[in-house]
Each structure stands twice: as structure tokens, then as C-alpha cells.
Design a protein around this nucleic acid. Sequence first.
DNA 1: CATGAATGAGACTTCATTCAT
DNA 2: CATGAATGAAGTCTCATTCAT
Lengths: 204, 204, 204, 204
Amino acid sequence: MIGRTVCTGKDSPRAEVQRERILCAAQKCFIEHGFHAASMANIAAAAQMSAGLMYRYFENKSAIVKAIVERQLQDGRAQIEQLHTSADLAASILQTYRLWLARDPSVMNPALYLEMSAEATRDPQIAAALQESDERIFEALQAWMARDRDDRGLGLPPDIASRRAHLLMQVWNGLAVSAVRRPNQDPAAMRDVIEQFVNRLVMP
Amino acid sequence: MIGRTVCTGKDSPRAEVQRERILCAAQKCFIEHGFHAASMANIAAAAQMSAGLMYRYFENKSAIVKAIVERQLQDGRAQIEQLHTSADLAASILQTYRLWLARDPSVMNPALYLEMSAEATRDPQIAAALQESDERIFEALQAWMARDRDDRGLGLPPDIASRRAHLLMQVWNGLAVSAVRRPNQDPAAMRDVIEQFVNRLVMP
Amino acid sequence: MIGRTVCTGKDSPRAEVQRERILCAAQKCFIEHGFHAASMANIAAAAQMSAGLMYRYFENKSAIVKAIVERQLQDGRAQIEQLHTSADLAASILQTYRLWLARDPSVMNPALYLEMSAEATRDPQIAAALQESDERIFEALQAWMARDRDDRGLGLPPDIASRRAHLLMQVWNGLAVSAVRRPNQDPAAMRDVIEQFVNRLVMP
Amino acid sequence: MIGRTVCTGKDSPRAEVQRERILCAAQKCFIEHGFHAASMANIAAAAQMSAGLMYRYFENKSAIVKAIVERQLQDGRAQIEQLHTSADLAASILQTYRLWLARDPSVMNPALYLEMSAEATRDPQIAAALQESDERIFEALQAWMARDRDDRGLGLPPDIASRRAHLLMQVWNGLAVSAVRRPNQDPAAMRDVIEQFVNRLVMP
DNA sequence: CATGAATGAGACTTCATTCAT
DNA sequence: CATGAATGAAGTCTCATTCAT
């Protein structure tokens, strides 16, 4: 212990790397099998480690689920933020939809999004996490819509901004459902739908 | 046995009644626990019958899930049909949303809707059922929007009708997600959102 | 259901027989391996049934342990009762000690007796069961010692009866410990010890 | 390395200190959780060292258990020896009982005493250790009772000394059981019981 | 000397499914 | 037709022990 720099413990970089491996594997398994059907053994195999080892980094399976939920929410918020920082809202939404259809692993997975939403009706912790995240999204969208056009906002009156933020969230959610239910849909077919919608959404 | 009408077999009315009991119980259990966490024993208890008996009417648990999925799709289509037979589209959508928030058991359950949508990414049969149902919904909506106003339609040109049918479906899906993720939302708060959306949706 | 007498459920004779099988097996395993080291698989094998089936009759392993504890306490009380209904107390105690040394399965097992006593320091439910049982034993002994000699008692004054009841319990416990720790002891060697003790115990 | 006394190996003072730490921790854990339920991780944490390190000083968990058993036997013998070196036997026994009830960590722990006695029926090594220790205790007690009163003995004839030594051991064991099973007993309530017993025990 | 990450066996428990009654 | 007892596989989780660092 003396004169030697050890680097262990639950906060060590090593531990962080392991947690990361587990979460990557878990995400893959949850997408493939769902939260309940994916087993700890599945995840361990995907993470190339023994099942027991995972319990060094996560208290139990539920903790892994929670962590994945948290991640998905983050990924979702990241995608939403791109919307109102992009010059072309319609193109941005369409791109999101494309990534969902392509099951791009670097963005929120829409199937997980639905599954964790359903799970929220059974698990209060998940429900709370989702609500909080949705709240943050809504506020960010509304703020952006109400902000001055000079300040990269839409310059809408607050009450209209609120309604449109809500509507945008519904459509965003709806597209996530669509991406899951109609995975072979040609995203181009949605281009006009989205453009028309956006045209009216941003209309003063 | 003489003078008595024997009425057995899988298509007897009795069998139909039993299947019905099982499906009612299953729906309740699936809503409460999810497809995977609900056990055959749970369902049997809810249906007030033995677990073994259920296998006389359904090949296995998966068959019950499939049947519930079919039912939910039917319930969903029934709700959608109400939309374009109603005089007031906005009120009708809002009412749908209200029922979802109230977890009214006589209509499609939005949590199940999300869960089975997620499940569709894993089960091709479910995926096919969903796609077909969505297709039918889309066509009905588009037909209604394209039909003459004299004939209780919206009288929109076909390409516009198509886009707006798509958009309506996204919003409908989005509201289902909302009903699950924000179960304590005051439905009245959505009234203006929906009305504004509908105003533009039905605009010639 | 109609016109047929079914006999199932958790209170059926069948269930009682199964519970008995499980408890017999469990007792054997607990004696052989101890409460913790005996596994549900051990018990299932000894009971010649699958491990899962045991959960139809007992909620969990702990419930089996509790049931065995309860049984042992009953067996112990039965042995104690024999003491003061017998004409020859010393012979009766010696016989108890003999049975313990012989590991006679029809009487309280002294090793289990010690193990469950130790377990009582960790499990409040077990502790409560033991205390209650000890209380009943003490009161029975004291009552017997205080009862008139005409009424098959020892005719001792209450305070003396109380002290001697306590002392008898200590020796009884001590012999149980002895039976476990010195299993090869010749019981005859204890005859005089017990007789001398009893002579003075019953002295007016 | 010149001029420095290297002091390693299994017999170094350092090693002895480590073993001591481990045993202290193990005793605490065994008392708290029992031999089986206490984990090596528990013990390591209590000893403030890594789990792996313990294997440098003990071959395995069983070796630690054995060492603790030896310790308890030593502690027990130390308490017994106090009995026949004390002027007042009854007071000495009562004091022992008091310390047991108080769970004083500096004396033999009665719960461990019971647990290891039970374990002796499963583990021949433990059984042998216990028998040998009991033998030594018995002989010491008997010798004391047979020794001349001038030589701080009781001056009893050998055969009587033998019987009374046995009886004393039963009562001693019985009090250990009592301390475990009736932890809330007021020790003063046992005073008269013990005094009466001792009066007759030491009677010529 | 010391760590704690890693493993593999095994513990408890649940559950879909079958089948004798 | 109906039961629920029974099984076996599988799931979650724990833990003694080893070993690279």
C-alpha cells in the first residue's frame, strides 16, 4: 500500500470500462430479446465474461435495466436537441427516422423506447425517469419555439409554443412507433409527410 | 346419451366461451405484468380455471399472446374507425386519449400496444399482424380523407389524403405513447393541441 | 365439478402426505448436513421428488426449516412430558439420553436441537418459537413438582419447585449437548450421575 | 538487503499478527452469521484485508473454522478453570452465565459453542477436537474434586468426584444452551438455582 | 506481500408444459 | 371435460477459491 499507486475499486477506470462492456452487451441483448427475455447469461456471453462477474459492477439485473433506460433517455434527448439546433427541422426529423429504421446503434433504439415505456407502467422508478426526461425535452422544445428568431428560436408566443412542442413530441413518438411497426417502410415516403407537418409547425 | 345434444369440440359455443374467459384473464394479466412476466398460473387463476385446461384451448402461451395481440389490433381499429365516423374529429381523438389515460379495459390498452410493438421486432408473426393491421388502418383513413365531402369524407386530393393519413397515424401513435409515459397528464391540457392539429389536418 | 368428489388443494390428504415426505427428507438432510449446508436439491432427492415440486407445499426453504424446528420442539416436549408421567424419573432421563446417543429418529435430534438454538440468535422467528416452547416446558415441570404427591406430583413448595424445574432443564439441555459431543459415551456410565442428581432433585 | 533482518515466512511475528486479525474478524462474523452463512468476503472486510490474502494464512475457509473452534475450546477451558480456582463456585458459575448473556467477546461464545457442537456430528476433526477438550475438562474437574481440601480441592472420594464432575459439566453445558435460548433472562433469577445446586455438589 | 478481478460451481426459485386421474 | 401434481429446464444470484498484476 505504501509507495505504490494502486488503481482499483469501483470507481477505477477499469471498473468503468467493465461497466461499459456490460452495458453495451446488455443493450444488444435487450434489443434482441427484450428486457425480460434477455438473461444474465446472454448478457455475460455478449460481454465475454462470466455471469457472476457482472454482479461486481451492478447490484442486480434490474440495475442494468435501469442503466440502459437512463442511457436510452440520454440518447433520445441528444437526438431531440439536434432538432432545434439544425437549420432544417424537417430534414433533421427525417434523418432521425432513418436512423431508427436502420437500427443505428449509436442512437436511441425505438424498440427499447417502446418496451421501456410499457415497463414504466409496472416500475415506478422507470416511470419517474421517463417522466423527468420527457419534461426536460418538452421544456427545451418549448423554450426553443418561444425564443426570438434572432436567437435561433422560432419566435412563437408562449402558449402556441407550448402546443406545438407538445404536438412535435407526439409526432416524434409516433415516428418511433412507426419505425418499429413498419421497419421496411421506405423513409423517403415519409419525407413529404414530415415536411408538410413541419411547414405548419414552424409557421408564425 | 339418447335425446341429448352433445355439443363438444373446438368450435362448440362452450369452447368459445372458455377461450373468451382465458383471453379476458390473459389481457388483464398481460396489462398488469407484461407478456413475459405474466405466468400461465396467473392467467389460470384470473380465469378461474386450472392451468392445464388452458392448453385445451390454446396450444401454448405464445398462442395466447398472439390472440391478445389480434384483439388489441381489433380494438385499435375499432377506435380508429370511430374517428372518421364521428362528426367532430378533434373531440373523438381527445376522447380516445381520455380512455387510454383512464385505462378503460374496453378499448385498446396503450401499454400493451407498445409492448406488442416492441415484441414485433422479435416475432415475425406479430410483426406481420401489426403491419397488416396498420395497412388496413392507413387505407381506411386515406379513403375517408379522399372521399367526397358529400359522402362523409374530407374531399382531399389522393396524395394529400395519403400524407395526412400518415400524419394522423403518427399523432395517434404518439398519443398512445403519451398516455403510457405521462399517465397523470390532465387530458384537457391536450385539447388545444389536438384541436389545432385537427384544424389543419382537415383543411382543404 | 358436478357429481364428482374431487379431493385436491393444499389441505387434501395427498398434500399432507407430500408435506410429510418433504419434512422427513428435510429432517434427514438437516441432521446430516445442517440447515445451511443441506440444499433443496438434497432434500428433493431424499424425498424422491423434483426440487420444484417442494415449492407447491412450502413457500421456501426457510419455511421448511421453520417446520422442522417446530417439529423438533414438539418432539422435545413429548420427551419432557414422559419424564413427569413416568414412575422412575432417573430411568426416564437415562432412556432419553440413550435414545439421543442412538440417534433414534423418532425423538428430538440433539444435533438439530443445538443447531436451531444457535440459529435462534440470528432468526427472530426461531428465537420466538424456542422461547415459547421452553416456557411451556418450564411451566409443566414446575406444576408437576409443585403438585401434591397424591396427585402424582412431587409436593414441593412453589419456590423450590421453580428452582428445581430450572435445574432439571439445565441438566436436560446439558445431556443433549453431551449426546452430541460425546457420541461414543457409554450411556450406562451416566446412570449413577443421573440417579444421584434425581435423588436430590425430588427430595422434599 | 545487507544489515536488514528479513523476517518473513509463515512463522514470522508478522504472520502471527495477520492470523490473529483474521481470526478476530472470523469470530465476529461467525457469531453474527454462523459458520456457513458467513462468507470469506465478510471476514475479509471485517479484517480489513483482501479476500485473497487470507489464503496466505489459512488453507481455506474450513481451516479458519477449525482455528475458531480451537479458540472457543480454549476460551471454554479457561472459564472452567476459573471455577475451581475460585473461592466461591456458585458465584463463579453465575458470573460465567452473566458473561454469556452479555455476549462478552472475551469469553467463549455460547452460540458458537452450540453451532460447533452440532458441526461435530458432521466433521470428524471437529468432533475429535471437542472430545479431547471435554476429556481434559472432565479430568481437571474430577481431579479438583478429589484433591484434598487442604490442597484447594473438595476432598471427595474418586467415584463421587467423577459423578459430580460429570454433573457439573452437564449443568455448565445446560447454562450455555440457556444463555442462547433465553437471552433476555435476568441472570439474577438463576442465582438461587445455581447456589442450591452448588451447595449439594460440594457437599462431602 | 497484497490486491481484487475473475471464474465456475452450485444455491434457491419460477414456470411452461404434460399427464394420470 | 377438467384438474393440479409433477417435472425439467432455465433464471437470478452468491461464494470459495485462484491468479495476474
